[in-house]
Design a protein around this nucleic acid. Sequence first.
DNA 1: ATGAAAGCGCTAACAC
DNA 2: GTGTTAGCGCTTTCAT
Lengths: 375, 375
Amino acid sequence: MSRPTVRDVARAAGVSLATVDRVLNERPGVRTATVTKVHQAISDLGYARDIAAANLARQRQYTFAFVVPEATNSFLRSLHQAIEDAVPVSRTERIDLQIHAAPAQDPHTAAATIAKLQDRRVDGIAVLAPESPQVRDALIRAREHGVETVSVIADLPTTGRRHFVGIDNIAAGRTAGRLMGRFLNRVSGRILAVSGSMMARDQVERRHGFDQVIGGDYPSLETLPSLEGRDDPAVVRDLVTTALGKAENVVGIYCFGGGVSGLLAAMAEAVLDRPVVTIAHELTPSARTALLGGQLDAVIAQDVSHVVRSAIRVLRAECDDRAIVASQERIRIEIVLRENLLQILPEPGASGGSNTGGIHEDHQGAGAVSRAVRR
Amino acid sequence: MSRPTVRDVARAAGVSLATVDRVLNERPGVRTATVTKVHQAISDLGYARDIAAANLARQRQYTFAFVVPEATNSFLRSLHQAIEDAVPVSRTERIDLQIHAAPAQDPHTAAATIAKLQDRRVDGIAVLAPESPQVRDALIRAREHGVETVSVIADLPTTGRRHFVGIDNIAAGRTAGRLMGRFLNRVSGRILAVSGSMMARDQVERRHGFDQVIGGDYPSLETLPSLEGRDDPAVVRDLVTTALGKAENVVGIYCFGGGVSGLLAAMAEAVLDRPVVTIAHELTPSARTALLGGQLDAVIAQDVSHVVRSAIRVLRAECDDRAIVASQERIRIEIVLRENLLQILPEPGASGGSNTGGIHEDHQGAGAVSRAVRR
DNA sequence: ATGAAAGCGCTAACAC
DNA sequence: GTGTTAGCGCTTTCAT
């Protein structure tokens, strides 16, 4: 006795395949009585539809476009890489993936890109862009044209995007704040805050969350106004060098934008009279190195590959008007210390691998995932 | 110009469908010259086989069994729940999931369960069991019978399991150690260690990792011999109460086994003259509460639903002799503080979860029968 | 060693 | 309203 199929349901309900199909897909043109009979048969038999077969028959092809900033820093590079890595896998699932890069910080181009997409038989758009009126309008327009939209990494709540795939950045900032406070324990002094600039919303939220915790629970700490590093290592380096020279009693640095390597360079040069607790965002190559070397005490990260996979799954689910597995799509706020870094190590992008026999790719043998949330 | 199919490949190579199929599946009985022609055509066309269609044609059904300890504590309960939650989803993908619970700590029953499974047309086994000779032999036997095996949560490296799905527990212990050391900053004193007992290997590894870090980097801290809490709240409570009464200058508690609620009860009763940094494993309901209430400073966790999903994917991939996406199967060592807890909140088991943001998942699993498809 | 044809479970025209 | 039928892309007898 193998799984029941539509035929079994049809036989049990005394109707034809087509009718079962109509009921299954909630298409109109079936008498309520018949619908009931079919549902009865379905539950009697414990029928569960074979999604793969359904998709095959449907010949459904999906075309999804990622609209993201150009890869001007290592975080964005890793995002691009993750998307590219997803292309072959997606192909296998009848999903065509496009990447459209717009200059960072350029809402016009991003909006124009999105606008063009509506026409081009794109089924869904995943976008990381500044929260500007142009972008907002373009996305709203797209949705009106029946294109599904999700925002990734930084939310665009006012665009009617069906879903946001990324971390809760206020919580991320709070998490950073708590670590800072606890690592500093009873120490008192000032904290340097370094922001980027692009992806405005997530940055603002992070700073906000950080301030909530530091301001609320650690009165002996004072966070200085954010230095605008523009996600550029060179800029960050200069700003931090200057700040470290000027500000007295700096005991912590919170870098919630890009350009971390610039920060590290500045710190290497500066003559610090005491240990400075340093926390940054995103597990870029230089952040990894710094974590291992002890220049960075903690990193707040999100798994970009997971963000990409999740965005794709969500767009697909939306296209099919299907529910999603919330727990699977939740992107975690990851806290990374030197100790739990190693197992994550396998560089992103190295994924194309030949790894046929068993996963344990020598490294440290264990696993890791991701997930996370919104609220 | 849609995706090329086997027909296109056959035409391009000037052979029949059957031959293409033979080449695709590396079946014998094809001349090398023909094989080459076909491969040529495949790469010329950029052909990628449609796995779903293949499985459909193959009528492949998978039967996987989870062999796990009875749900005697909240962590194991969440594991059972996660497996049960995966059943309906898996059914949809032609995967039948079975759960077999053996009494915790009972290698004989676990081994016997595994032994029985070999015969029963099971394609893969995911097991969490003590690392005993009986279990080892049963698993080796199973593999010899062509059954794929993975260990979950606690590794069984000597059983030839194709893969381990879970965290690197030494790294997890190290992570806990680092947090303990940093949260205590320059404080000196003793640390109470509370172990469980079942799942021996992971516990040993955790303690080992913890000691590496504390012993190596925090000479002013001393970790006491582990109290064997047997994963039982009542036992843990008594042991901890006694220990807190006896030991002087306890500044930290590391609980790397189950029975966390007993620990919390003991701490609530004890009169502590100073704050004690407390770190535990696994995000059970009481751990969540304690994290929010501040009784617990950090939790080292792993996402059991992900472990379950991953084990299933890995078994499937092994059955199909396919490569897996390593990064997707890596289980993270999650560090959970109060600040990044909230976003994770949706209780496990509430499989739908109260949804937080854009994810409207109206009804859950129940109706594997899905809805309208548009477009 | 290779090919022709009949499905797998489902959907979608098109009849009735 | 409901049923018939021809596929979707692939695998698999069974011939040749």
